[in-house]
Design a protein around this nucleic acid. Sequence first.
RNA 1: GGGGACGUAGCUCAGUUGGUUAGAGCGCUGCCCUGUCACGGCAGAGGUCGCGGGUUCGAGCCCCGUCGUCCCCGCCA
Length: 618
Amino acid sequence: MTLDFLGNLQRTHMCGDLRASNAHEHVVVMGWVNRRRDHGNLIFLDIRDRSGITQVVLDKELSPEAHAKAEAARSEYVVAAIGTVRRREAGLENPRMDTGEIEVVASEILLLNESKGLPFSPADEAIANEEVRLKYRYLDLRRVEMQKNFRLRHEVTRAVRNYLSDNGFLEIETPFMTRSTPEGARDYLVPSRVHPGHFYALPQSPQIFKQILMVSGFDKYFQIARCFRDEDLRADRQPEFTQIDLETTFPQQSLIFKFVEGFLTAAFKTAGIELKPPFVQMTYDEAIRNYGIDKPDMRLPAMVDLTATLTPELREALKIEQQLPVLGFVIPAAGVMSGTQKRSLVDEIRKFFGDCGLDYLDIARLKTNADFVPLAESIQNVFADALDEEWGLNPAGGEELMVVITPKLGTPAMWNFDPQWIYKKVGGLRLELAKKFADKHGLHNQTGTAADFKFCWVTDFPMYEWDEQAKVWQAAHHPFTSPHEDDIKAGRLTTDKGAVRALAYDIVLNGTELGSGSIRIHRKDVQAEIFRSLGMDEAEQKARFGFFLDALEYGTPPHGGIALGLDRIVMILAGASSLREVIAFPKTAKAIDLMVDAPTEVSDQQLRDLSLRTVTRT
RNA sequence: GGGGACGUAGCUCAGUUGGUUAGAGCGCUGCCCUGUCACGGCAGAGGUCGCGGGUUCGAGCCCCGUCGUCCCCGCCA
């Protein structure tokens, strides 16, 4: 096959931009052959570029040479079509194409490049399996869906950049080759050639650097920052990912929230979604009590506390622990269930709880016993009140699945020293059943409006977590997170660690943690107190954070910030269920890049340069 | 580290209780076709059933191991 040279030919239009108003214009479009429809003396080529697809017509009578080239063209050949835009005759338009009103009548075709037989066609509706997609990622990325995702990602990033820039933030880059920062994850290491046996670490986040930028007086910083964590992957976790990272001097929590709500609103607007800030705010405690989790999925009704409906006598009669909470929740529109379906559901619930003491209480069965009818009714009333206000649901309709969970006699008040475990357990069941009935209630489906996106802020996280194995209190966040000033003043750092609240906050979208931030400690005395309460002596402090503690001693202003996962934002906005759909060259669950085949072994020479030797671990 | 699902043609999949020569759709190749847009018609090529071992007269199917992809737990403050 003889290929044509591009010469000085210039593209005049993008394929997707041609409209009826371009009729009679002489145009040059370039792109890939999406499909070829050969009718003998008449050939249609669908030419695709980033902007869309346009139909090019080749008529053997009008231009035999161009027709012959089109005959030779195959899927994904790169071509240039030179011709005239023609308004399609009535009846020949294709309303399903943006460019369906017109076609390009080609006088000339250039075959700029050919393509091997494809493992899969980017034009196909059926999607190949992920292994093949990732190996031939360049073909996968040609698909309209992927092009759309990356355009969205670009628009989101641009909106965030513009918003933060317009609000006084400076974009400053921090190093990729650095030393371990105090995040909890495993580091990716880079060996130093110049310093044998020494390693740089790739940043898990720019945390320390951005705090130092505050010490440096930059006042407001942001960065679209790549971060690296050497931990096992999930659908929503890749070893390298991108954070929208920001920090500001003299912050109030509310100020950070305002900035984040601002850039998210701007970002979602690029996708046609009008968010209405301010977002819902709740404390960690409220989140646990109402949703049983610190990242509430507010697309479904919250849990309902039914504790007040049970008198001590009723608890006695129903063999329910006296002091523990009784919780319930509703799965909307789960549908009327047969006896068999109901029994298997109850079995499933009991299996979910195992032998922790929690049990399903059947409202329908309560009603069969005159003694318990008032209880059943009052439970239903509590449900009705809760659902009527916010959700406009009527639990008496029979379509809603009402789940009531009671602690049986002997249920422990604490589980792993956690007094809130019942809330968490029931909250877990709520999410499980929400997933199970997702097809029925449809509340996880996107409708293309702001209602699809339920944001909330979770505040006042506990400062410490009890580590039962090590029998010590651990910092729940990185150790530069400031405690509430009230808790410091009240001396709780020493007397009541479990009650100390951190000035830390998460932003949550549809049950996914999008980001996490805090007001930092800027005073040396408070920092020392935190380290002391964590049982970290001065030598250890110095070894781990010495340079940073030094910096804090030279006039550190109050400061704080947040970081949001850009990939996750785009994923949810795109309605995708894996980060791989919004990361151009992602890695597999085993952290392999199937396209470039990384990681690989390296040459002996490379290892020698780095003073490294590999050994087989036994 | 642990649990689960999957692996059959280039792609998406079917394949009966273990029984002859492993099928379909799409794609691909050739020929025909001037209004298709998932074009159509005719003909054709294409398979180490992921890999290794075992059971059996006989394995795509059963068993063991192994590799790969995906999902989850652990892990990721």
